[in-house]
């Protein structure tokens, strides 16, 4: 590992210089193991699950498919950096209230992807079907997505539209013959 050049980038608003970053180091591993930012979750490492989503210059990217060295002088934001901002808190609160956090392993990835989507459009924020469509690369194995869609709808203050997953739940007597 010696002889590799250092890497300078901005992470969560702070300039960081990381010594000896090998050419094949992934951004995911740089964040987790060189900078100690473990809120970025390691899932499939092949771009298939979205758990490792971070923001690069405000846009969401899969950190498992991004080479760390491409981040020279770039601005990287992880869930740690975003937490505490009103836009992230709104998403996190909506997920918590809707029951969209079960094991929670996919949640930071959803939060980053969502914040970036809502920022991108500025004046005309994306509607519910657009958000749901754009989140197709973020997988969740616990919730079956119903609670996640509820969280998205709550966030936008709209009802769940007809083509998106929505459920009703009632507890009723009558279970005895």
């Amino acid at each position: 590992m010696t002889g590799e050049p250092p890497l300078t980038l901005r992470v969560n608003g702070e300039e960081r210089t990381v010594p000896e970053v090998a050419a094949d180091t992934r951004l995911l591993d740089l964040l987790r193991w060189r900078l100690g930012l473990k809120g970025t979750k390691e899932g499939c490492r092949t771009g298939g699950c979205g758990a490792c989503t971070v923001l690069v210059n405000g846009e969401s990217v899969l950190s498992c498919l991004t080479l760390a060295r491409e981040m020279e002088r770039q601005e990287v934001t992880t869930v740690e950096g975003l937490t505490g901002t009103p836009e992230a808190e709104a998403v996190q609160q909506a997920f918590a209230e809707a029951g969209a956090v079960q094991c929670g392993y996919c949640t930071p990835g959803f939060v980053l992807a969502l914040v970036s989507l809502r920022r991108e459009h500025g004046a005309s924020p994306p509607d519910l079907p657009t958000l749901a469509n754009e989140l197709g690369g973020n997988l969740c194995r616990c919730t079956g997505y119903y609670a996640i869609v509820r969280a998205l709808a709550d966030l936008l203050g709209v009802p769940v539209t007809s083509e998106l997953p929505k459920s009703t739940f009632t507890v009723e007597p009558g279970g005895s013959p």
Binding site: P165, S167, V171, E172, G174, G175, S176, P177
Partner: peptide, 13 residues
């Protein structure tokens, strides 16, 4: 997931 899911928990047994 199906756009319309109805869950009924039947209590009593």
């Amino acid at each position: 997931p199906p756009p319309e899911l109805t869950i009924v928990a039947l209590e009593g047994s």
